[in-house]
């Protein structure tokens, strides 16, 4: 993946596409029951496993990976800070809070309804974070992610407390630790909305790039700054809420992937977007495959794998950047 980032043009696209396809093939093959590609067309049972479980799982990993990486990119644009992402700055936690509250007061709500409520709370939580972040001095860029992490921690404590008091702690795990093992046909399709959000980002890419230059420059260039901020917030909140509802919180994708891509391609949203989406999809799928293999036949949740891989990757990014001065 990283090698593909350095190249540009059609060759890089072909290489990245081939890598992603290879990952998909591996993902379709890895699982408790043996599946061989040759028998897909002849064997009904094999076909069923693939269509009902493996393919949905693989698609869910790709969609949430691409969506979260893009959500991270947009969040960094909104906060004008490279080191924030929805999963660590309170967006995902507010979404989980929304789901928890819906489960408490309206247990019969449909998944779509829960997503809607979660999107709304995520929107509120992220707006508060951005209001704080925009108040911090731009001379101390490290304060913004720090405030985000603590803010996310406070919301997380809220979440644990409410769940504790209402005996919902075991459900909480399902929303806070991202996992694909429960993904089956019929239970992931909402994630296609994340793909629609990515398309929206692509459509407004130039406007987002202008937004990243700050309020004064944006207004000077005739951009409706507040409106664009709202669109960005909407994208981040909806993608986060979707992934929390369907698979749970997956940390660090939104952080590591856009930062890596930025190194090679810069922050022109339109230019970076394909690499970020493909990179995010590839990273999450890789971590999911790893989680399936490390302790085969048991599974390790993708959120845990990414917590390790992502945190280590982020530290390397941080320290490298610092040593550059």
């Amino acid at each position: 993946m990283i090698a593909a980032l350095k190249l540009s043009g059609p060759r890089a696209g072909i290489l990245a596409g081939a890598l992603l396809l290879a990952l998909v093939a591996v993902s379709l093959n890895v699982g408790v029951s043996e599946v061989s590609f040759r028998s897909v067309w002849s064997d009904v049972e094999t076909r069923q496993i693939i269509m009902a479980s493996r393919l949905p799982r693989t698609l869910a990993a790709l969609l949430s990976g691409a969506g979260l990486a893009i959500a991270g990119l947009v969040m960094q644009t909104l906060a004008r800070n490279r080191f924030v992402e929805p999963a660590t700055a309170g967006t995902s936690q507010s979404a989980a809070l929304g789901i928890l509250v819906t489960t408490l007061f309206w247990p019969s709500a449909s998944v779509a309804m829960k997503t809607l409520v979660a999107s709304a709370t995520a929107l509120g939580g992220t707006s508060i974070f951005l209001a704080i972040a925009h108040r911090l001095p731009p001379t101390q860029p490290y304060l913004v992610p720090l405030v985000g992490l603590i803010y996310g921690g406070v919301l997380g404590a809220c979440l644990t407390f409410v769940a504790w008091q209402t005996d919902l702690l075991q459900y909480l795990e399902a929303w806070t630790v991202g996992e694909f093992s429960g993904v089956l046909r019929g239970r992931y399709e909402l994630l296609w909305v994340a793909a629609a959000m990515v398309a929206l980002v692509w459509w407004t890419a130039d406007r987002l790039t202008v937004l990243s230059l700050g309020r004064d420059v944006s207004i000077g260039l005739g951009l409706d700054y507040d409106r664009m901020l709202q669109i960005g917030l909407l994208v981040v909140s909806v993608i986060s809420a979707l992934t929390v509802v369907v698979v749970g919180i997956i940390p660090f994708v939104g952080l590591v992937v856009p930062n890596l891509v930025s190194r090679f391609k810069g922050d022109n949203v339109g230019l970076a977007l394909p690499s970020v989406a493909v990179g995010g999809a590839g990273l999450v799928l890789t971590c999911d495959i790893l989680g399936r293999l490390v302790r085969y036949p048991y599974e390790i949740p993708v959120g845990t794998v990414l917590g390790v891989v992502g945190a280590a990757g982020f530290l390397i990014l941080l320290l490298r950047k610092n040593s550059h001065g």
């Binding site: 992610p145 603590i150 917590g307 945190a311 530290l315 941080l318 320290l319």
Partner: peptide
């Protein structure tokens, strides 16, 4: 601070 917090997550 940031390094420390991320270390904690790790």
């Amino acid at each position: 601070l940031l390094v420390g917090v991320v270390l904690g997550v790790l």
